[in-house]
Design a protein around this nucleic acid. Structure first.
Length: 270
DNA sequence: CGAGGGACCTGGTTGC
DNA sequence: TGCAACCAGGTCCCTC
């Protein structure tokens, strides 16, 4: 269930248990993920974590020499086990620490990734060409407006493109477009600068609110097995097809755009 | 170069 | 109740 806020919450949840700790063993039970888990992940054994970062929806766990790139895909999760626990069906990877703790990677659909990087993490080809972080100062109205010129693709696809801006998933794309009053199918190149200003603000707002929520409701995410639907109360249009728009009362519409379910109010969004 | 669709997987829900 | 069809929070890769 990971969108950017959940990846950020996961990072904050695991960091205190991993930072400066030493890996004793990496156990790969199922190497068939989005890409095969490289045998090189064993290079992590004997090394300490020196920093943990998030880039888009990727988690970057830097070790003394090299590091791990983890992506949770559609259904992945990371948990800290404080004592040994027999692996369940989709518990694909364990990273054991000398503290006795274990970082366990679970991913039923196996769209996630668990990769080894020898050199600099940020220059890895998966990360090199990513757009700016939506909550950073680099993500500006001017930037988004400039990149959108002459683009015919639907604005929803445009903001979900990680080469434009990272971390805007299917839920928050619908949510931010509703907040900005922009129809999800409008061509990206046909949205005014003024409306991009509202969209940038909406994306920042919805993501930062969700991170705050994740920080409270998902505090025990790393200990338990997650809390599905934790932000459901906050959603304005997502998964509300047929229900009344909170703003005008018209029925919220559900439509497939770019092969993904999209939700919007046909009265409020143009 | 951009746009669009297929591909990768499992599991829960829906509908006949 | 059984079973098939459809849907799900991601994103790379191929074709046109």
């Amino acid at each position: 269930m990971p969108e950017l806020p959940e990846v950020e919450t996961t990072l904050r949840g695991i960091e205190p248990y991993l930072l400066n700790q030493r890996i004793t063993r990496v156990i790969v039970r199922q190497p068939k993920l989005r890409w095969p888990v490289p045998a090189h992940v064993c290079k992590a054994e004997g090394q300490r974590f020196v920093s943990l970062k998030r880039r888009g929806k990727y988690l970057l766990l830097s070790l003394e020499h090299g590091g791990l790139i983890i992506h949770l895909g559609m259904s992945g999760s990371l948990r800290i086990l404080k004592q040994p626990l027999a692996p369940g069906k989709h518990d694909h990877i364990d990273v054991e620490l000398d503290t006795g703790l274990c970082l366990r990677f679970n991913d039923p659909r196996r769209f996630g990734a668990f990769l080894w990087v020898d050199g600099d993490m940020e220059s890895h080809e998966l990360l090199r060409d990513l757009g700016p972080e939506p909550l950073s100062a680099d993500f500006t109205t001017d930037y988004l407006y400039l990149r959108s010129r002459d683009r015919k693709t639907a604005i929803k696809n445009f903001i979900m493109n990680a080469h434009i801006v990272v971390g805007v998933g299917n839920i928050y794309a619908s949510e931010s477009l509703f907040m900005a009053g922009i129809h999800p199918q409008r061509a990206a190149g046909r949205v005014s600068k003024q409306r991009y200003e509202g969209l940038v603000a909406a994306i920042r707002d919805v993501l930062s609110r969700a991170i705050k929520q994740g920080g409270t409701s998902l505090r025990d995410f790393v200990n338990s097995d997650g809390a599905p639907g934790y932000f459901a109360q906050e959603l304005l249009v997502y998964d509300r097809g047929g229900s009344d728009c909170f703003q005008c009362g018209a029925p919220v519409r559900q439509k497939v755009i770019g092969q993904r379910s999209s939700y919007y109010c046909p009265a409020c969004q143009h």
